[in-house]
Simulated scan of single mutants.
Amino acid sequence: MALSVSDRLLHCLVLSVCCTSIHAVPRLASYNVDGAKVSVSGISSGACMATQYHVVHSREVMGAGIIAGAPFMCSGGLAATALGTCMMTPTRISVTALEAITSSGALFGNVDATYHMRNDRVFIFDGTRDSVVNPVAGQKVAQYYSHYMTSSHIKTVFNINAEHGMPTLNYGGACDQLNSKTYLNNCNYSAAFQLLNHIYGGLQAPNSKIQANGQLLQFNQADFFHLALPSAYSMDNVGYIYVPSGCANKQHKCKLHVAFHGCKMGRMFVGEEYVRHAGYDEVGDLNNIIILYPQVISTATNPQGCWDWFGYTGSLFATNKGFQMTAVRRMVSRIMGSSSSVLG
């Protein structure tokens, strides 16, 4: 049906506003980052993405925090396996098979050589009340990583009465309840601090009176997709970065941590709840750790707004050629700028 002149004008105006709002988001800046101090973490699908990113780019990553996640390539690229074996019946996960897949990926150059993980540090959390991801999955993550590093480098926390969500020091709903609006659980326990402290060591701990004094900034994620819009791969046009007050002037080397949100925890679903209240910002501010918060959206192939750990973006999702993996690595590279001796 043909549009009237007024309809066409309105259509153009809407497009103009949308395009202006996208382009008005600033480019991601570069900072003074120590290339040997890059780490990742995530909750739920974000935990699976953190494991993927860590294994695939272990030459560039020193540690990972896994909260209610599953081992690398657990899904085998199948949503049914992700929802079934990985999340509901993890006793059926064959860690030996996943180790073989990892070795094959390294042999063909799709993931970094596994010896790069030998000195890395991994933190694994699963709440005893988790009704979304069977806590046994955390044990399988620990078993997987124990093949590549000493047990002293793996810290597991499986004894807190927490439901599915991000455990925080003092924000969110009841720790033992499913808080499906934000998935932030007030557990009097900062998972963000605990995992970052295990990875880096010697960090200053936050308390309930400490506020983040740095800057939470938006940036344009479209910069990191060269052939299509971010939405083609279920990613938002907008991402977030938290820059601690001690890192803003770029005079001192800072650490860099990538925090992957979980399903229904991106900007589209919860606004800035996760990026402001998951607990990373306060720890980052006290310890000069820049926090990168890449964002995923809901699409037809990904209605829950999850990171791709089951192949909805294609068969290469868990390799160095995966679309989401590549975009996040480009973000990391931009933040590190010329200070990195690893990234090109």
Rank of each mutant, 00 (worst) to 15 (best):
4 S>D: 05
7 D>N: 11
7 D>S: 12
11 H>G: 11
13 L>V: 11
20 T>L: 14
21 S>R: 12
31 Y>A: 01
34 D>Y: 06
36 A>M: 13
40 V>I: 06
46 G>D: 05
50 A>L: 04
56 V>S: 10
60 E>Q: 12
72 F>E: 04
77 G>W: 04
81 T>L: 12
84 G>N: 04
99 E>Y: 07
101 I>P: 00
101 I>Q: 08
108 F>M: 10
109 G>W: 09
110 N>D: 13
122 V>M: 03
125 F>P: 00
129 R>W: 02
132 V>M: 08
134 N>T: 11
148 Y>Q: 01
162 A>M: 07
162 A>V: 12
168 T>D: 00
170 N>D: 12
174 A>P: 14
184 L>C: 02
187 C>F: 06
187 C>I: 08
189 Y>W: 10
190 S>Q: 05
196 L>Q: 05
196 L>C: 02
198 H>A: 01
214 G>M: 06
222 A>D: 04
228 A>T: 09
228 A>R: 09
234 S>E: 07
249 N>G: 05
251 Q>I: 11
259 A>S: 12
264 K>I: 14
274 Y>D: 02
274 Y>P: 04
282 E>S: 07
288 N>W: 07
289 I>P: 02
289 I>C: 14
293 Y>T: 02
296 V>R: 00
297 I>Y: 02
300 A>E: 05
302 N>Y: 05
305 G>H: 05
316 L>Y: 02
325 M>P: 04
330 R>E: 14
